[in-house]
Amino acid sequence: MAKLDKIAFVTALLIGSAADCLAADKPAIVVEIESPLASSQPLQGYLRQTTDAGPSPAVILLHSCNGNWQRTDERWGKRIAAWGYVTLAVDSLGPRGIDSCHNTTPHDVDRDAYRALKFLVQLPSVDPARVAVLGFARGGATALRAVEHGPFEKTSPHKFGAAIAFYPPCSSFKGYMTVPTLILIGELDDWTPAEDCRNMVDGRDVWGISRQERGAPVKLIVYPGAYHAFDAPNPKIPIEGHHLEFNQSVMDQASEALREFLGATIGTKELLQ
C-alpha cells in the first residue's frame, strides 16, 4: 500500500471511530410518545438521535417483563445508535402502574410497538420506510406479533421493515411473518425454550405453518451453552426458578448478528462498515 493510501486508510478509520463515539456519547432523552389526552396510559421512552443530517433508519426497543427500559437503552440503544440508527426504548409497564409482567400481562401491551412507530415516523430525523422493532423475552414476543400476519399488522397505516426477537416465547404464533425476522436464543434457555422457536420457524408447531416457506424469511440463531438473558450483565438468578446467565461471548456474537441483519434490512452498506 502506498504511503498516501495508508494515510487515507488510517484517516478513514479515525473518522469512523470518531463518528461512533459522537453517536454513543449523545445522551438519550426522555420523550412522551403520546400526549395524556391521546391515551389514559400514554407511553414514554428513551430516544437517541444520530449525528446524520438526513432521515435515518430507526429501531424501537421493547423491554422484558422486568420493565428494565433504562437498562435496555443503556445496553442496546446506545450501541445501536452508535451504528447510525435512531433508537427508542419504550416503557410499557410504568405508565400502566406495574413493575413486572411475570404474573400478569396487559393484553394491550402488544399494541405498544405500533404506538411507538406512530411517534417515530413523525420525526424529521427518521426515515419512516426503515424502522425495525426489537424486543427481549416478552418484548420479543411483542416484536414478533407486530409483524405477524394478523390484526395488528393489517390495521396499522405504518409498517415495520424488520423484526428482531431475543429469547422470545415462540409457542403462540398463528401466522407467518410479513417482514424479514431474526430470532436469537440460547440452547439452554429453560424459560423460553429454543425448541419452541425451532418448531415455530419450521412449521412443526400446532399451527403447522412453515415460516421458511411462507411469508418473509425468518432466521433463527441458537447459541450453544447460552441461557435466558445471555445479554444482561448481573441478572437476578433465578427468577421463578429459571436460570439466567450473562455470556459475553454470545453477547458479542449476537451484537454482530444484529448489526449485520439491520444493515441488510433497514440500513445501508455504509452502516456495515
Score class of each variant (00 low, 15 high):
Leu117Arg: 03
Ala81Tyr: 08
Pro180Cys: 07
Ala254Lys: 06
Glu270Asp: 11
Leu61Ile: 11
Ser210Met: 05
Glu148Gly: 00
Asn199Val: 09
Gly67Leu: 06
Pro151Thr: 09
Arg130Phe: 02
Phe173Ser: 05
Pro106Tyr: 08
Asn234Ala: 12
Ala89Lys: 09
Asp252Met: 09
Ser172Val: 14
Phe152Arg: 13
Ser172Pro: 07
Gly175Ala: 04
Gln273Lys: 11
Asn234Glu: 08
Ala89Asn: 04
Ala58Thr: 13
Gln49Ile: 13
Val206Cys: 15
Gly45Ser: 05
Val206Ile: 15
Glu245Arg: 15
Leu62Pro: 01
Leu272Gln: 11
Met177Ser: 07
Pro217Glu: 10
Leu22Ile: 15
Val179Trp: 05
Arg138Cys: 09
Pro217Leu: 03
Ile164Val: 15
Leu22Trp: 14
Val30Gly: 04
Tyr223Trp: 07
Arg48Leu: 04
Ala264Arg: 06
Gly139Ser: 03
Val131Asp: 09
Gln253Trp: 04
Ser172Met: 08
Ala163Ser: 08
Ile33Cys: 00
Asn66Arg: 03
Asp20Val: 11
Pro169Tyr: 04
Thr142Val: 14
Pro238Gln: 10
Val133Lys: 02
Lys236Ser: 11
Asn234Ile: 13
Ala143Cys: 02
Ser172Glu: 15
Thr105Cys: 08
Glu245Ile: 10
Glu245Tyr: 14
Ile164Leu: 12
Glu213Trp: 01
Asp25Thr: 14
Glu34Ala: 09
Thr181Asn: 00
Ser125Ala: 15
Asp91Glu: 13
Ala53Pro: 02
Met177Cys: 05
His158Lys: 01
Lys118Cys: 06
Asn66Ile: 06
Pro233Val: 05
Pro180Ile: 03
Leu144Glu: 04
Asp25Ser: 14
Asp252His: 15
Asp196Arg: 00
Ala24Tyr: 14
Gln253Met: 12
Val222Tyr: 08
Gln41Leu: 12
Asp196Gln: 00
His102Val: 11
Gln212Ser: 14
Ala232Asn: 14
Phe230Cys: 03
Ile266Lys: 02
Ile164Ala: 07
Ile98Gly: 05
Val206Leu: 10
Ile29His: 10
Lys154Pro: 06
Ile7Cys: 07
Thr142Ala: 12
Leu4Ile: 14
Ser39Asn: 10
His107Pro: 14
Gly225Lys: 06
Asp189Lys: 04
Trp83Gly: 06
Gly67Phe: 00
